[in-house]
Design a protein around this nucleic acid. Structure first.
Lengths: 356, 356
DNA sequence: TGTTGCAGAGTGAGCGTTCACATAGACGAT
DNA sequence: ATCGTCTATGTGAACGCTCACTCTGCAACA
């Protein structure tokens, strides 16, 4: 019974066929779950497979079927909660559907490395590519490459230049409006915005939402303060906002920056939310556990990741259902937002000078 | 000149050979950069390749060479800064060496899905597998699978059960000692610890470091408070620690939890660092931008990721150099740690009762 | 002038699958 | 008895490479 299952070299379909006393084609039918195989025969084959620890060669299979069952995943930027979570759930969904995911993440996202990454993916004959990147330019670079395979972009702008580009995203605009409306409802009238990085599509949509909500309420709009998603940039703007005694609330384009803003504000003696309300975006796990807990807009990245995969799958199966689903964010009220101080005018006078 | 480069179906090595007026073997020599090809010939081939947009089939190549140039990457747990950063840099290094990375991330990391993930990777004939997981059990599950390929674990415990398992890690023990010694130097005598998740190797090492540093200084040791890496668990422990008037400092096993601890403490009226010093671990980007900025231990995950790849590469090339490098963490002093209040005894009396 | 050596090619087999097709037997209808 | 039909199985080619050879001509040497 005991086999010489030494390092002999892996069994192939013919070895299995021989052991099971059938043709290689019958083995193929069994591994591919095709009909017209007698249960008894199937059994013998299955046993032979197990005994020989046979694993079909993906290379041979890909060679003849011309399908690799590999998906390319490109992501850019410093690892963030949003991108990572989306990616993990995309990968999980793919795995469950028995697709392999060839990942190509990169911090910089410049045209050169992006092109190299795509090239490598294409060289692997991936069946489709999904891009999780918020950088408008990155998406454009990719769209200008002759891919030859479908592209799914997890991105908030409908900039579908090419016919075979599909999209899945949150409604960032609505999310931002939600946030700003919440501040307006609380009674705030001067609401500032710290935006995300230049060239970021999400940043653009969020700023647009802020602007629209203010316009709707006929409230004053001043130029947004340009951040870069880093807590450091939030902090810098927090410092300068501390000196702005007319505003009573800040809508920040991300939680990470919002925490920086709060720290900047607090370090100058401005209290949150008593003096200034701060609103974030994303709802990162930490948001609820800082002082004060951050009001924010929740994005369900897990669902987004799975959505991206479903879309990819339907594109691959030519069901051009492909409706660009846009998930709605949810408002999360916590302690960093509150009605403005009841005595705004007096307040304004006493704290007019630059604080330091 | 203009070709009918319609959807004709991709060119193969023979098409290129025909166009260049050489044999397929010469084309093969060119794409593999082998010698004994006249420059003029090489040129013609290169031109033909460009003209036909020829890309060699990885499947055909893998079929004959028996090498896939694909690496498997498994990671477990909720996406975190540490894991994501390590993974991104591993991927980048691999891409630069023209290796593809098949990613299989999963939130749960239970034996079943872990086995399924490994199975899928093995089915793709990956040349090696790297695991970025802190869960002892996950690593054990994987080590008990007959992989047939080398395994590199990014993990802090030297639990090399199998011969072909290699490791790369930080010296978590030293890092934790560093942190605790910093607190001791500041004058703290009662230093508590909020540990990471049960079953986490890093958590174990960090707790061990805390214990050792206290023992070295002959300071009292009480059982650690068991967290689970989540900010929520940090918060809970922060709440209970607020009632512990004997301790003046807490060493928390991660920054995320440390922020939760600070929030718990602060919500009970305990000031950081005036009443309690809090020390984190990891140095996440946010750590410097909360109030107060968090003292912590910095881990260079980017280097770790690259190290993992170098190790993998040397293992693949049979250079069993394979020394288990352990990178040293660095102490980062910020504002969440300070000398204990000068009047600890009085303090102790006034705040003895449970705060709430 | 013949022999050797080597650079620069080419030839054909083989990798492990799936696909299209061929074949054998069983069964019911004519 | 004969034919078609369906099920269960087998046969051989093709996929696109690399590998191990073979072949050709030219330079160098005795």
């Amino acid at each position: 019974m005991t086999q010489h299952d030494k390092q002999a070299k892996a069994a192939n379909i013919f070895d299995v066929a021989r052991l099971a006393g059938v043709s290689h084609q019958t083995v193929s039918r069994v591994i591919n779950d095709l009909p017209n195989v007698r249960p008894a025969t199937r059994d013998r084959v299955v046993k032979a497979i197990a005994q020989l620890r046979y694993v079909p060669s993906p290379a041979a299979r890909a060679l003849v079927t011309k399908r690799s069952r590999v998906l390319g995943l490109v992501s850019t930027g410093v690892p963030s909660f949003s991108v990572s979570t989306t990616a993990v759930h995309f990968t999980t969904a793919a795995r469950e559907a028995r697709y392999a995911v060839s990942a190509s993440s990169m911090v910089s996202g410049d045209a050169t490395s992006l092109r190299a990454a795509i090239e490598l993916l294409l060289g692997q004959k991936v069946e489709a590519i999904v891009v999780i990147s918020d950088e408008r330019e990155a998406l454009e670079v990719i769209q200008n490459i002759e891919l030859g395979v479908p592209l799914v972009a997890v991105a908030s702008e409908l900039a579908a230049v090419r016919e075979d580009t599909h999209q899945v995203a949150f409604d960032q605009f609505q999310g931002a409006s939600l946030a700003v409306e919440h501040l307006i409802e609380l009674g705030h009238r001067e609401i500032r915005h710290v935006s995300g990085a230049v060239g970021s599509m999400n940043a653009g949509e969020r700023e647009r939402g802020w602007r629209a909500a203010l316009a709707d309420a006929k409230l004053p709009i001043v130029p947004a303060l340009a951040g870069d998603w880093s807590p450091a940039s939030g902090y810098e703007h927090g410092l300068s906002l501390a000196g702005d005694s007319t505003m009573t609330a800040v809508f920040v384009a991300s939680d990470e920056m919002a925490l920086g803003v709060m720290h900047g504000l607090q370090s100058q003696g401005r209290r949150v939310p008593e003096d200034v309300s701060v609103m974030g975006f994303d709802d990162i796990p930490l948001a609820a556990y800082v002082t004060p807990p951050l009001s924010t807009v929740r994005l369900d990245f897990a669902t987004l990741g799975r959505d991206a995969f479903s879309l990819l799958l339907s594109v691959l199966q030519d069901e051009d259902a492909a409706d660009p689903t846009r998930r709605m964010p949810a408002l999360i009220r916590r302690a960093s937002t509150a009605p403005p101080a009841g005595i705004p005018v007096t307040q304004r006078h006493t704290s007019t000078g630059r604080l330091r």
